[in-house]
């Protein structure tokens, strides 16, 4: 009888001990969480206030005017609504150019990325010692913003679609190369061994052994990239060269009187982006299989 009571009290003591320790841990965790939250809120508010003070127009003045410009555009466009279809036809060639820039840069970038990714995957690389070099190369390609390359190339090559194409292709190479090499790492090496035993060269081993395993995943990432590149090519057009972005800039800087053109381009751009967004997500689901 006496023994059991002692046992119970010891057990109860242990329980309170464990509970105290647990509560202490929870408190520290909560404290850290609280501190993180406070720091985050402080960063956000001070950042917001700083950005507000360095902006030409303040936030609270601006927020009331947000709808002025879209309102003007909609008003003018609705007055000239009969002209809109004709304007959309007029800007269609520029839209095609924008899409071409995106498609060409995705293709070129994707093809180079395939080679670079194979060269920088452990187990597949042709020159295993140079893996680091190829990886850094892709890092740098990824880090350079497209606008930098585009603006420098415009100075040398003159305006037009090619500077934008090269700029986006460079970035695409870096971005896709990294994703591709992550896919390559999961490829089974057994087909490669089989091919090697028949005396296949490196290119043959890659083409026949690796590509069939990883092609659907590559394609899926490339499609996603294509969608991103359409947006990028529209933006680059606005900043300097070629495509529908350039027309948008001209119409926009003309100001009132050409807002029907602005509206037409907005609609075209919106429809294109939504269309390719849907198209790419449909095919991506089909290729990889929805999880």
């Amino acid at each position: 009888m006496a023994e059991t009571t002692i046992g119970q009290s010891v057990g109860a003591e242990r329980t309170t001990e464990i509970q105290d320790a647990y509560m202490a841990m929870t408190r520290t965790k909560r404290m850290y969480g609280g501190i993180m939250l406070v720091i985050f809120i402080a960063l956000m508010t001070s950042g917001f206030m700083l950005a507000d003070s360095r902006n030409a127009g303040g936030f609270w003045d601006g927020i009331l005017n947000v709808f002025n410009f879209p309102g003007e555009v909609v008003k003018e466009a609705s007055e000239k609504i009969t002209l809109l279809p004709a304007l959309m036809v007029k800007f269609f060639p520029s839209l095609i150019e924008t899409i071409n820039i995106a498609a060409a840069s995705t293709l070129v970038g994707g093809l180079i990325a395939i080679v670079l990714s194979l060269l920088s995957t452990r187990g597949l690389a042709r020159f295993p010692r140079l893996i680091g070099l190829f990886r850094r190369l892709m890092d740098i390609m990824r880090a350079i913003p497209e606008i930098v390359v585009a603006l420098v190339l415009i100075f040398v090559l003159g305006g037009g679609p090619v500077p934008a194409m090269i700029a986006i292709a460079l970035h695409t190479t870096g971005a896709l190369g990294k994703l591709f090499s992550e896919i390559n790492e999961n490829a089974s090496l057994k087909p490669l061994e089989g091919l090697e035993s028949t005396g296949a060269t490196w290119a043959q081993r890659m083409l026949l052994g690796v590509v069939p395993q990883v092609a659907p995943n590559w394609l899926s990432y490339a499609l996603l990239r294509f969608e991103i590149n359409i947006r990028a090519s529209a933006i680059l057009g606005f900043v300097g060269s070629g495509g529908i972005g350039y027309d948008l800039k001209n119409a926009f800087s003309w100001g009132q009187g050409r807002y029907d053109e602005v509206a037409a381009i907005f609609i075209l751009l919106f429809l294109t982006i939504v269309f390719f967004d849907q198209l790419s997500s449909h095919y991506r689901n089909k290729l990889v299989g929805k999880v």
């Binding site: 950005a51 902006n55 030409a56």
Partner: peptide
């Protein structure tokens, strides 16, 4: 791109 254009009209240049 379009958001940037719309907002730059309302808020002026700046971060």
């Amino acid at each position: 791109l379009i958001w940037t254009i719309i907002l730059s009209r309302a808020f002026g240049p700046g971060p």
